[in-house]
């Protein structure tokens, strides 16, 4: 009995006191401790039941049962630990995700704002351009009109030129070369007539009906 207790105390103390126990995996420790407790409880039971020998058997049995209980506990702890690990991982993932998401969304917002700015600028450009376009179209139309008018004028002038050229050609054909002689003759005849009129003393015998209108 004392021996068992001593052993147990030593084990417990050692485990408790020595951080080195921590290095042994907690699972192993749990199971070991469980076994220890079981052994003690078993021993107690054995002692209670069977004296000194019983305690040893009881302890052995107890250790086995304790080990089983320890195992159970270890399993449960394991489960919890796994769950915690899982949750922690999830939490970390989600945190990470959210962090990324926030940054991404911020960027998206920026992008949207930027795009809207672009859109506004483009619209302004378009509006201005429309004005320019209108001005150009008007200029183009006025030029076209000038060209059409010019064409009409040109046609008129060309026709007029044709007519005048034809007339001039005709003129050249039918007009005689300078004949100053005829000029002199006409002047002489007119002068003689005038003189004769004074001599005739203005007495005329006119046998005529209405004169023609010269056109």
């Amino acid at each position: 009995m004392k021996k068992i207790v001593n052993v147990l105390v030593v084990v417990l103390l050692v485990c408790a006191l020595l951080p080195g126990c921590a290095t042994m995996s907690d699972q192993t420790r749990t199971k070991a401790e469980g076994a220890g407790v079981g052994a003690v409880l078993g021993g107690l039971l054995g002692y209670a039941v069977g004296g000194g020998e019983g305690a040893a058997i009881g302890a052995a049995v107890g250790a086995g049962a304790g080990f089983l209980v320890g195992n159970e506990i270890a399993k449960r702890k394991q489960a919890y630990a796994s769950t915690e690990d899982f949750l922690d991982a999830e939490i970390a993932n989600t945190q990470e995700y959210n962090k990324t998401a926030i940054a991404y969304n911020a960027q998206l917002s920026k992008d949207v704002a930027q795009l809207e700015k672009e859109s506004t600028a483009l619209r302004a450009k378009y509006d201005k351009g429309q004005v320019d376009k209108k001005a150009l179209a008007a200029k183009s139309d006025s030029l076209q009109k000038k060209i059409d008018d010019s064409k009409k004028l040109e046609d008129t002038l060309a026709k007029e030129l044709e007519v005048q050229t034809a007339i001039l050609e005709d003129e050249k054909k039918t007009r005689p070369a300078d004949d100053q002689y005829i000029v002199r003759l006409e002047k002489e005849v007119a002068a003689l007539q005038k003189n004769l009129d004074t001599l005739r003393d203005g007495s005329t015998q006119l046998a005529k009906i209405d004169q023609r209108l010269s056109v």
Binding site: C15, D26, R29, K31, E33, G70, A74, K77
Partner: peptide, 14 residues
């Protein structure tokens, strides 16, 4: 912490 505390820690925690 279920990762530590050994058996007793385990029992306590549980």
């Amino acid at each position: 912490d279920p990762r530590s505390g050994g058996f007793f820690g385990g029992v306590a925690g549980l």
